[in-house]
Design a protein around this nucleic acid. Structure first.
Lengths: 273, 273
DNA sequence: GTCTTTGCACCTAGGTGTTAACCT
DNA sequence: AGGTTAACACCTAGGTGCAAAGAC
C-alpha cells in the first residue's frame, strides 16, 4: 500500500498516491489554452516522477476516471496531496520554510491531484497561506523544540497565488498534477512581485482553492479568496510549517539538502570532495 | 528618427519603435489570467530593454493610447515588429534559422507590439510560418549566394504556436510587447512537442495572427489558422529566413554569436582567452 | 558531396544553504 | 543574544555554435 494523505476543511479522503510524469506534449499544451479541447489528435507520454521540481506532470488519459457528463456541483471535488510521504518526514521533524526579501520557493512544493471536477466547466486553482494560530515562536536549541515567544505580529497584506495554468477546464486540471513550485514566500511587506507575504517565526498552513469561473469576479492576487458555493478549499495538516530566515533545526537542513536538487552541492558527496 | 518597419498582408504602417521593459509585477501577472482586470492597485516598473530574450516587456500604463470604449472591429488593429533594426541586419545578409530534431529557438525572436484591440475583448495571439515559394535552395560558397536547387519538398503537417499568454484581453495584449521567444523550429515531422515543423533549405515567412475569442472554435496547434472576420494576419518582409541544419553564411554565424547572449562563449573575448 | 546528427564546452538564468556582517 | 541580510560557491536547467561522425 502506498502512502496516504488525509485532507481537511471541506473533504476527507483516503486513496493511494500515484506518481506519473509526462514531458509537455501537444495535448497538454493546448489544453491550457482552450475551452474546446478535444484531446484527440495526440499521444500522451508517461514516465516516472520524483517529488522535486518537475513542472509538468500528467496522469495520462482517463486518469480522472469516468465522470457524469453534466455534473456541475462542487460536492464531488477531491484534492489529494502528492509527495505526502516527503511532507510527512518534514512534518515529523517540524517543517521550516525560509522566507527572504526577494522571495523563496517552498520545499517541498505543494502538488495536488484533483478529481471530481466537471470536465467542461472552467476553474481557477489558487493557493493561499493562513496563520495556524495567533502566536510567535522561537526555537530553543538545547531542547530542539519550538516554543511560544509571544503573540503574532500584526496581520500582513493578503496574497493569493493563482495557478499559472488558470483559467482552464476541469478536464485539463484533472489530467495533470497541479504543482505550485513557482510560488514564492517573502517577508517583504512591500513586495510587488506577487509573492506571498508572511511573518518570520510564525506557523502557517497552505490552502488550495478550486474556484468555478462564474464565481471568480472577486478573485485577485491581492484580495482574500472569496467564499461561497463556487469555491471549495482544501488543506493538509502535514503541510503546516514555521517560517524562518535561517534554518533552526539541523535535521531540517539535512533533509532539505538531501532532497532538494538545487541543494545538491551541500550533500556529503559534493562539497567535501 | 528611430527605425521603422513596414508590415504587409492586411495592414501598412509607419511608426517609431519603442523599447521598454518591466519586471513581472502584480498587474502584469494578474492581467494574464483575468477578464475583470482592474489594473488599479499596483505600480508598473519600467526599464530599458534589448532585443535578446527578455520575456516580459511592458509598455507602461496608457501605452496603447485612448481607445473608444465599445470598439470591437478588427479594422483598427495594427501589429508593429520590434527589433526591426536587428532583423534588417540579418535580412541584408540573408537570414538563416537552424532547425533541429529537438527543436531550436529563433534568433532573433519575433516580438511585436499590438495596438487597436478592443481592451475588453478576449483574443488569442498566434504565430505560424508559411513557405515563401515552392523552391528548395542550396548555398553556393564561392559566390556566397543562395541558389534554387529544385522544387520544394512535400508539405509538412501544419503547426500553429498559440502565444502562452492566450487567452487574454485586448488591454493585456496591448500593455506588453508580445514575444515569441519560446517558439521552437524542428525538422522532425513526427514531433510531439508542439514545435513548428519545417523543411531544411527552404524559405519561410513567419506570420502573426490576432484571433477574436468568439472566432477561435477551429483554432488548434495542429490545424491551419482559420480565416475570416474574427482573424487578422500580419507579416513582415524582413523576417523571411532560410532554414538550415548548420549555418551556411559565416556572416550570419558571426552576427548570431555577436547578438545572441547564449552564444557569448563564441565571441572573440570569450573562447580565445 | 552535401546535408544531418550528436556530444561538447561555454554560456544565461536562476534555485540552494553557507557564512560573515549587520541590525536591534 | 537572536534574528536578518547580502555575497558567494555550487548546483539545476537549458540555449549557443563547434567539430567530428554519420547518413544518403
Amino acid at each position: 500500500m502506498l502512502p496516504v494523505s488525509t485532507c481537511t476543511v471541506n473533504t476527507f479522503k483516503r486513496s493511494p498516491i500515484v506518481y506519473f510524469d509526462i514531458s509537455q506534449n501537444l495535448a497538454q499544451y493546448w489544453a491550457h489554452n482552450s475551452e474546446q479541447s478535444t484531446g484527440s489528435d495526440s499521444e500522451v507520454i508517461t514516465e516516472r516522477s520524483s517529488c522535486s521540481f518537475d513542472t509538468h506532470t500528467d496522469l495520462g488519459p482517463g486518469a480522472a476516471g469516468p465522470v457524469p457528463a453534466a455534473m456541475s456541483s462542487m460536492e464531488e471535488i477531491q484534492v489529494e496531496l502528492q509527495c505526502a510521504d516527503l511532507w510527512k518526514r518534514f512534518h515529523d521533524i517540524g517543517t521550516e520554510m525560509i522566507i527572504t526579501k526577494a522571495g523563496r520557493r517552498m520545499f517541498p512544493a505543494m502538488r495536488v491531484k484533483i478529481t471530481g471536477l466537471d470536465p467542461h466547466q472552467q476553474y481557477y486553482i489558487a493557493m493561499d497561506i493562513v496563520p495556524v494560530d495567533n502566536k510567535r515562536y522561537r526555537y530553543v536549541y538545547h531542547s530542539s523544540k519550538w516554543m511560544v515567544a509571544g503573540n503574532a505580529d500584526s496581520p500582513v497584506p493578503p496574497r493569493v497565488y493563482i495557478h499559472p495554468d488558470s483559467l482552464a477546464s476541469g478536464d485539463t486540471w484533472m489530467r495533470q498534477v497541479v504543482s505550485f513550485d513557482k510560488l514564492k514566500l517573502t517577508n517583504n511587506e512591500l513586495d510587488d512581485q506577487g509573492h506571498i507575504i508572511l511573518h518570520s517565526m510564525h506557523k502557517y498552513q497552505p490552502r488550495v482553492h478550486v474556484i468555478r469561473k462564474d464565481f471568480s469576479s472577486d478573485l485577485s492576487p491581492t484580495k482574500p479568496v472569496p467564499v461561497g458555493d463556487g469555491v471549495k478549499t482544501f488543506s493538509f495538516p502535514e503541510t503546516v510549517f514555521t517560517t524562518v530566515t535561517a534554518y533552526q533545526n539541523q535535521q531540517i537542513t539535512r533533509l532539505k539538502i538531501d532532497r532538494n536538487p538545487f541543494a545538491k552541492g551541500f550533500r556529503d558527496s559534493g562539497r567535501n570532495r
